[in-house]
Design a protein around this nucleic acid. Structure first.
Lengths: 187, 187
DNA sequence: TTGCTCATGTAACACGTTACATGATTGT
DNA sequence: ACAATCATGTAACGTGTTACATGAGCAA
């Protein structure tokens, strides 16, 4: 239901191709909402049928032609309508295959669980490094040029940091959690 | 792909009805994997066709008859096979509608974002209270009767706590995160 | 008398994944 | 030489959600 609005929200900032949307998804919304290319292409054709977006072809010689999508007024209205109507509950579907396996840990044995938790920790640490790099990039991008110090932090930047920070903090706490459990396994 | 194994894993512990599975899902795996009743019923008929589970009817006078599912040897094998084959990556699909809206916060305005963050914090706090109660229940259940102090903590209990603790810790860090951002909104 | 719990399901639809198909350009 | 990037999509399948249908018993 919300992939639609994720796409509209990004097109609301600037017109783009499907391929481009996918890259933006991966860079910004990825910690919140994942989408595959084929999903995006399909959704775009639906959105065009519904009149929420329109497209035009931009020819290129060296690379395949681009199909650039722009949001329509109806699309903008629909997006804003969705945006402000927060649902009462915060429940989101969860599908964490890794945790599902760990939950059945009694069938795995402590040694295996321990090994997997250690792998998990390593992976969280790698994510944290990446996230920190992303954060640096954001500052450079939005603070580029001739800005001073304090005005540099734009509101748009704030919301990007928002998501990154959340991912960072949860990764950190997950490391803590896993370390605690490794200790408990040894009791 | 894993709902299948979630069901098999629970049936591996004890035979159950679909309705019953749903309740167990809600109580234990819910923070990891959500499933609706209709999904479970559908999956059970598929699993029966595949020979991973079998069922028998238990008649009841006052209430609707029960259809009790048991795991078969093939089912057990398939479950164990899945269980030990951890995938290399830890990536799980994410669909967090609340965060998606906040991500587009620039279109919402700071006051609205602030309001929603406060609602979010309240909800996390409620979750934490529930989780703490669940944790108490687990201790009571597994430590019931004539156990001493140290042997009381069974290995099964450990994995239940595992999941609860993770949910607890992430909720706590999310409160911290939201509070930090409320402050930043005021800058 | 309203709504919850118990207990089963079906049908339609929406959404997500995987595999396939094409093909030039650029970097290692 | 090989892989990645750019760029489009379709088709089949698998999974998840929502709405509908049925109906007794029990508690506020």
């Amino acid at each position: 239901m919300s992939l639609k609005y994720g796409i509209l929200g990004l097109l609301n900032q600037t017109p783009m191709t499907g391929y481009n949307l996918k890259k933006l998804f991966d860079k910004s919304i990825n910690h919140i909402w994942t989408a595959s290319l084929s999903q995006i292409y399909r959704e775009l054709t639906i959105l065009e049928k519904e009149g929420y977006v329109s497209s035009h072809i931009q020819e290129q010689d060296d690379r395949p032609d681009k199909k650039i999508y722009s949001i329509s007024d109806e699309g903008r209205t629909a997006f804003r309508e969705w945006l402000k109507n927060f649902s009462d509950t915060f429940i989101s579907p969860k599908r964490d295959e890794f945790m599902l396996r760990l939950f059945f840990g009694i069938n795995l044995g402590k040694a295996e669980v321990r090994k997997q938790l250690e792998r998990f920790i390593d992976d969280r640490k790698k994510s944290i490094i990446e996230l920190n790099e992303n954060e640096k990039l954001i500052s450079q991008l939005t603070c580029a040029g001739d800005n001073g110090d304090k005005d540099c932090k734009s509101e748009e930047e704030l919301y990007l940091r928002f998501v990154l920070k959340r991912a960072l903090m949860t990764n950190q706490v997950l490391i803590q959690w896993a370390e605690e459990y490794i200790k408990e396994l040894d009791f």
